[in-house]
Every structure is written in C-alpha cells, then in structure tokens.
C-alpha cells in the first residue's frame, strides 16, 4: 500500500511540527509514508470565500498529485471534509464554465474514498487504538466542526487520546460548539468570531486542562492565539503531536 501525506498548506507553512509528528507516528506504526512535493492546497479558503474557479484548479491539482497513491492521510479535519464533501459539489458547480470542471467529477470520485483524516487512518485502516504514546498531561479535546459534523469522526480522536499512557483526558463543556474560526470568517466577522472564541476559551478554562488538543491546526491557531493573548497558560497541540510523543522522546 502506497501511503501519501497531504500535509495541507497551513500545516506545511505554519505548523511543520505537526507534519513531522505524523511522519514519526506513521513510521512507528510501520507505514512508509511518502510526501509528494507537487502538493499545495486543497482550495478550501478559495471555495469558502467565494472563488470557485481557483478552487476548481486546486481540486484538479490535488487529484492529479495523489492519483497514484492507495491512501492519502491528512492531519486536518476541515481539509479532509473539503475534499470528501465539497469536491463533488465543486465538480458540478454552475458558478464556473463547464469546460473548467470537465472530467473533474470522475477524478474526484476516484480520489475521495482514498482520503483519510489521521484518526480515521489509524483506527479504520490500521486498526490501531493504542499508538504507543506517552504524554503525562491533563488534556481537553475540541472536536472542531468539520471533524464532528462534516467527517463524523465521532469518538475516534478521544479513543486514541484515552489510550495514551499518562494522559488525563477531561471533557470540554460545549465541545460541539464552533470556536469561531471559520477561515476568512475570522477576519470578515471579527467581532462575532472573537465573541465565539471568548465562550470557547471560557469553557476550556473550566476544565483545568494544560493542553487543548484538536485535529485541526486552523481552529487551534484561532483558539491558541486567543489563549496566548489572554496569557491563559493553556497551550494548544495537534492530535498528531500528542500521539507521536513517547517517553524519552522529543516532548
């Protein structure tokens, strides 16, 4: 099985530690993951801000780059949801000329079943719950909207976290509520976005957790940026980074 890592543009550019953690974790589990250098961005920002033509180009690029692989692993719930849920709609959109989307539908149909969010890949493909991680900290988990309502990840991430040695998992009140990131929403509707995050942070603080974990660094950038601005003393970590941590390891 040839497994490719789709790192996503945000992780590639701003959170390379998450990418390294995915590689470390998958290698530890015996998966020889490859990184196709031609990959760029899934097009989520363009499509969700109203630029479907750019989105179509990026979707086509994605299908071409990853066509030869058996599985594509992505450490981002919203990018996985973009591919799985929005690519088929994008391939059929009437907002760009039909010749731009020609053939995209078929390419999307072929690629979609091979694309996995990290926790889906670990549990559903590899069949592993205990990844051999050690992380002696109090952690709360924010499910993120696209992981929760888009991908229906359910309890997969928390099952993985529960199996981590030393980790104390505490439930986050109002976990299913959006943190207010929403891509360009965070800038276009800055006040509502900040108000939503204020409530999310309030809930995080009641858990007494030292680490907020999620499977999407975009949401964590928003919540983490707010936690940091407020000097809350809570840090944010991507699920992959916790699962990659071992006793005597880097963390």
């Amino acid at each position: 099985m040839r497994v490719a890592l789709f790192i996503t543009c945000v992780n590639d550019t701003l959170f390379p530690d998450t990418g390294r953690a995915v590689v470390t974790l998958l290698r530890r589990l015996g998966v020889d993951v490859e990184f196709p250098q031609a990959q760029t961005c899934c097009g989520q920002m363009h499509v969700n801000t109203g630029y479907p033509a750019e989105g179509v180009r990026l979707a086509r690029h994605f299908t071409e780059v990853f066509a030869e692989y058996d599985a594509v692993v992505t450490p981002s719930g919203s990018c996985t949801a973009m591919i799985r849920e929005q690519y088929p709609k994008l391939a059929a959109t009437a907002r760009v000329p039909a010749k731009q989307t020609a053939g995209l539908g078929t390419a999307v149909e072929e690629i979609v079943p091979k694309v996995y969010d990290l926790s889906e890949f670990l549990l559903d493909v590899l069949g592993v719950t205990d990844v051999g991680a050690y992380f002696p900290h109090r952690v709360t988990y924010h499910p993120t909207c696209h992981s929760l309502r888009g991908l229906h990840l359910g309890d997969r991430p928390t099952r993985l976290l529960s199996a981590v040695r030393g980790l104390e998992l505490v439930a986050l009140p109002g976990a299913e509520e959006c943190c207010g990131f929403g891509g360009t929403f965070a800038v276009k509707n800055r006040d509502i976005s900040a108000a939503m995050c204020a409530d999310k942070v309030g809930n995080i603080m009641t858990t007494g957790a030292e680490v907020l974990c999620a499977a999407d660094n975009s949401c964590l950038m928003h919540i983490g940026g707010t936690l940091s601005r407020q000097k809350s003393g809570v840090r944010v970590m991507h699920l992959a980074e916790i699962l990659a941590a071992t006793e005597g390891g880097a963390r």
Binding site: I7, D12, R20, F35, G224, S228, R229
Partner: peptide
C-alpha cells in the same frame, strides 16, 4: 483587514523552515 486577526489573537510564530523544506533537506527525517 488583517488587523481583524491580531485585534484579539496572537499570531503563531512563523517557522524558520516549512515542512516541505524539512522533508527535502532530511529526506523525510
């Protein structure tokens, strides 16, 4: 328009090296 981000949130630190640059340099570690 980007002040909409930094009004209420800190920016993440920009890493010195992107993931792809790291992969390139180390052949994936």
């Amino acid at each position: 328009p980007m002040s909409g981000w930094t009004d209420t949130r800190d920016l993440p630190d920009i890493p010195q090296e992107s993931f792809r640059a790291w992969w390139d340099r180390t052949e994936g570690g």
